[in-house]
């Protein structure tokens, strides 16, 4: 059997201990190039199972305003993919968490996908999230990613059909990521029912762990669906927390 990707391992370990795996997301170089790696070390130290490092892009269509303005601040400080790679190479062995690079396709494409894959593996990256690469467009690159032990994590939504999920399941991701916001209207209770139903479909379609993300800000949001989720991703809430000068460890404590 193929060796389990570190990302799957980390989530499963958390689940075995009776908790959700915690996946913080921070754009590389946020809030400043100097402070960033200390924050990553602190997140790792305070229980992050996987850390998503955002590769900033000028036009992040799949993100909300908080992530977008954070990314643009990073770009203004001169954060680039080569900076991320060379820094990560220095810090990787100090980190226990699995590492995912989350970035839009164009910066990766300009860097060169082979160069990206080679350097990512060397720097200890375990997987990629590319929110603007759907199945049809990522397929031609899966073999390359696989050669460098990079798992590709698909994002699915409340509007993704079962058939489509089964197709994504066919690429054997290390984990799948359900994006929980889609202009859910109606009452709280009906929204929870919708989310539960979709999570059940995701669980059924995929063999891998399920992460839930986008718009998570409090633990209570998880209560009605806790039994169906293996991992949680936080982006905007963490960015806002850090931006107000508070510590990463304090943020993590509330979720442990």
């Amino acid at each position: 059997m193929k060796k389990e990707n570190l990302l799957t391992q980390r989530i499963n370990e958390a689940v075995r201990r009776g908790r959700k795996a915690l996946i913080p997301f921070v754009p590389a170089g946020f809030p400043s190039k100097d402070a960033f790696w200390d924050i990553i070390l602190e997140l790792d130290d305070s229980g992050a199972d996987i850390i998503e490092i955002g590769v900033p892009f000028s036009d992040p269509v799949a993100d909300g305003p908080i992530v977008e303005s954070a990314s643009i601040r990073c770009l203004e400080q001169g954060v680039s993919l080569s900076w991320i790679m060379s820094e990560l190479l220095k810090y990787r062995e100090k980190l226990r968490a699995g590492i995912v690079l989350m970035g839009y396709y164009n910066p990766f494409l300009q860097y060169g996908l082979r160069r990206l894959s080679t350097e990512a593996e060397k720097a200890g990256v375990n997987g990629l999230i590319i929110p603007d690469l759907i199945l049809e467009e990522v397929r031609p690159h899966l073999e390359l990613f696989g050669d460098f032990h990079l798992s590709f994590t698909p994002l699915v939504g409340l509007n993704t059909s079962k058939e489509r999920m089964r197709e994504y399941s066919g690429i054997s991701p290390a984990f799948v990521y359900l994006v929980s916001v889609l202009g859910i209207t109606g009452t709280r209770a009906s929204a929870d029912r919708l989310l539960r139903a979709k999570l059940a479909e995701v669980k059924e379609a995929f063999d891998c762990p399920v992460a839930l993300g986008f718009g998570l800000s409090s633990r209570a949001q998880l209560d009605p669906i806790a039994d169906l989720v293996d991992a949680v991703v936080f982006g905007s809430a963490l960015i806002e927390h850090l931006d107000s000068g508070r510590k990463a460890s304090e943020f993590m404590k509330a979720w442990k």
Partner: peptide
């Protein structure tokens, strides 16, 4: 390929836009 003009075109969007 569907949605391509030679090597240009395609659908580079979040999965959430595939249904519409």
């Amino acid at each position: 390929r569907k949605g391509y003009f030679g090597e240009f075109g395609g659908q580079f969007v979040p999965e959430l836009l595939v249904p519409p």
